[in-house]
Amino acid sequence: MKDGDPMTSTPANVVLKCLASVFAIAGAMLLAAAPAAAQANADAIKRGEYIFRAADCSPCHTDTKNKGALLAGGRALPTPFGTFYSPNITADPVNGIGKWTDADFTRALRQGVSPDGSHYFPVFPYTSFTLMTDQDIKDLKAYIFSLPTVPLANKPHNIGFPFNLRFLQIGWKMLFFTEGVYKPAPAKSAEWNRGAYLTEALGHCAECHTPRNLLGGMDRSRWMAGSIDGPEGEMAPNITPHEATGIGEWDDIDLAYMLKTGAVPGGDVVGSLMAEVIRESTGKLTDADRTAMAKYILSLPAIDHKIEKPR
């Protein structure tokens, strides 16, 4: 351009130049910020993977028996109310949760409400996940969104009237659900609180090990005292430290070892659904976390509740 060129001297051009510089600076800042953001996301994914393990998401959301893809759902979950089929929770935008915002994901876990406002059935253990911290929920989403997406459509649940009426879940929640993040007990040690958080919020152990009433609500007076008709009709043993009917003969070393390997003090190795929990969840945690869980569980009130089925 020559001097005096009208293009260089118009006010509009000056504005354009200024804007260009602003964009250049902003762009440079973005470029500088991008690696930091990518690093932050990588950290979130890494933390989220551990949360994913501790919360044992994969067994229910993967149809392993029929060699289904990870988190693509479709696993049959038979209950006294009918058979549920777990949904696809891969980040597929059509069939999965790919369009969910952080707020959607948080609301699903914290409140048991889907992005379209409908209420989940408590076969999804939001009743436990409500205790999770915001940070853990966000990290968990980051990890799930880092996994391969699978375009598999959800299978409709096969549940009878009137249990199939989703709005009834509002009443169910009023009766049996308390929303809110885990509040550490100040009188207890950090290890105990960590164990409680892992057991109650992430591990959602009580969902199977606490008996349920006729409406499917957990019986709080028999917390972790075992259920004769747990998931898939299996018995879930009493895991309170009751000597005769629970695991009162175990110490924290025994229980932590069982959570790692499946081996129980009598010489057997647990099969059933607990084997999945060990393979996908507790077997992949740190020794310190397993010990914290064991100590917490053995600190629960011992409840006399014999779990036995006529054979």
């Binding site: 499946g262 081996a263 099969g271 059933s272 084997a275």
Partner: peptide, 11 residues
């Protein structure tokens, strides 16, 4: 032990 459980669970 995990190998034992890996067979008990499905079978």
């Amino acid at each position: 032990a995990q190998a034992c459980g890996g067979c008990h669970q499905p079978f």
